[in-house]
Amino acid sequence: MTTPAKNTICLWYNGDAEEAARFYAATFPDSSVNAVHFAPGDYPSGKEGDALTVEFTVMGIPCLGLNGGPAFTHSEAFSFQVATVDQEETDRYWNAIVNNGGAESACGWCKDKWGISWQISPIALLQAVTDPDPAVAKRAFNAMMEMKKIDIATIEAARRG
C-alpha cells in the first residue's frame, strides 16, 4: 500500500466522482485516476459495492472524490486555477470544460458539469494585471472584466494602451 499524500483535496460528488476524475485525467496533463474504492456496506447515498471514493490527480494535485450524495454542492469559493501559456492552451481547457456540460462565467472562470469552478488564467493576464505601472494594470483589468474566456490578444492590446 502506498503512503497517502500529507494533504489531499477532497471533493464531494453526487455519485459521479469517477466520471469527473476520468474527465480530468483525459483533459489535463499530469492527471490520472489512481484508485476507485467501493463501499463495504450501504450508506445514506449509496449501496454496498458502489464507488465510494476515487483517488485522482489533477495537474499534480492529489484529490479524493467522495460520492457523498446530494447534501452538499460546489461553489465558487473553491476553484482550480490553471495557468496557460498561450491562447491555444487557454481555448483547449476552456472548451473542454464548457463543451462537456459546463458553463461559462466571467473573467476567465468556468464551471464543469459537476459544479467545480475553474479559472483558466493565461500567464499574460496575470502579468498584465500585476504590471508595476498602475495605469497598465488597470487597462488590462478593465479589459478582463468584460470577458468570459480570456482573449490574450485583447489583454495585450489593453496593456499596450
Rank of each mutant, 00 (worst) to 15 (best):
P4G: 01
K6A: 15
K6S: 14
N7D: 02
N7Y: 11
T8S: 12
W12M: 08
N14F: 09
A21E: 13
F23K: 13
Y24E: 06
F28W: 07
F28T: 06
D30E: 12
D30I: 04
D30H: 08
V33I: 03
A35R: 13
H37W: 06
A39E: 03
P40M: 12
P44I: 04
K47D: 08
E48H: 06
D50F: 01
A51L: 03
L52D: 01
V54Y: 06
V54M: 03
F56I: 01
T57Q: 12
T57E: 10
V58E: 01
P62Y: 02
L66M: 14
N67R: 10
N67Q: 11
G68L: 12
G68V: 09
G68N: 12
P70E: 12
F72D: 04
T73E: 12
H74F: 12
S75R: 09
E76F: 08
S79D: 07
S79T: 12
F80W: 14
F80V: 10
Q81H: 07
V82C: 08
V85C: 04
Q87I: 05
E89L: 01
R92L: 02
N95K: 12
I97K: 01
G101I: 00
G101K: 00
G101Q: 01
G102E: 04
A103W: 00
S105Q: 12
G108W: 06
W109E: 01
C110G: 03
D112M: 05
D112T: 00
S117V: 03
W118N: 04
Q119Y: 02
I120F: 00
S121D: 08
I123W: 04
A124M: 06
P132L: 06
P132F: 04
D133V: 02
A135S: 13
R139A: 13
A140H: 13
A140D: 12
F141H: 11
F141L: 14
M145G: 15
M147L: 15
K149L: 09
A153Q: 15
A153H: 09
A153G: 05
I155V: 15
E156S: 08
E156R: 14
G161H: 15
